[in-house]
Design a protein around this nucleic acid. Structure first.
Lengths: 139, 139
DNA sequence: TTGCGTGCAAAGGTTTTGCATGGCA
DNA sequence: TGCCATGCAAAACCTTTGCACGCAA
């Protein structure tokens, strides 16, 4: 038959707990690994990656590829704000990643769709520039 | 002294020729490797990656990370169209690159600066999504 | 001749996979 | 008990690096 059982295991609970703790922050596979190792509850790489894939399929997590040499980022999708759209801004100097979500920014996708015939995938779109902190430091 | 010599070699000419041929399409390191190998003018991986880095530094090529398992994409920057004042939209399906410039889009940078304390570098920012042509084809 | 560019192979990092074992239901 | 999930190690991937040799100027 269609063997689609899903087991609830300790490892999966730990991984989800880490995501909950991080809220809407981005998390890398390695951060999960390290955190669990430091808490004396190590989980293997394969398990993390496999479960990350599964969570992504289920729509509970989004996957981003922002910079290379660092690995992909994963972000937990809260049940309640599942459709919350937002963009990322990455500072080219300090490398920090910011989230922006406001009415103007959230209207961009609609505008671009209406006027430019293009459907934006905000999860893959990153604004590059320089953040305020770095700008002030540079003076 | 400031030993900043730049040699013009056969390998570099071949790589640039490939970019020229591809126009504004995106290209992966592997595509360059394969194309040159099929043309009986193989070039080593190291050379491709090293020259790609150099081209990027010189601003002749832009580097994007779109999907993984595929590697990074590189796009040739035509000398004449300096794409400074507007944004790019890249279709994730056909790889085509579109330019958008309109009052609303051009106001984004100002808004983000005023409200989010971040200076956008529009030349490095790319909107990812699906273009109208591909969307209609998918139906 | 000078010193930048190249090729090869090895190393680097992240992610995937095969297989035997473990553990949920 | 039946399967799914796990862990380990090895492999697969893309990319970078060290070193000796080649080649443009």
């Amino acid at each position: 038959m269609a063997g689609n059982k899903e087991y609830r295991t300790k490892q999966r609970e730990l991984i989800e707990a880490f995501f909950q703790k991080k809220g809407e922050q981005h998390v890398t596979a390695d951060e999960i690994l390290q955190f669990l190792k430091n808490n004396d509850t190590p989980v293997s790489k394969s398990t993390v990656y496999r479960y990350l894939d599964k969570l992504q399929e289920l729509g509970k997590v989004r996957k981003y590829t922002i910079e290379e040499g660092v690995g992909s980022c994963y972000q937990y999708v809260e049940e309640n704000h599942s459709c919350k759209e937002h963009y990322h801004m990455k500072c080219l100097q300090c490398g920090k990643l910011y989230h922006i979500s406001c009415s103007l920014m959230n209207g961009i996708a609609e505008h671009v769709y209406q006027k430019h015939d293009f459907v934006i995938d905000s999860s893959k779109t990153v604004f590059y520039g320089v953040c305020g902190d770095c700008r002030r430091e540079n003076v």
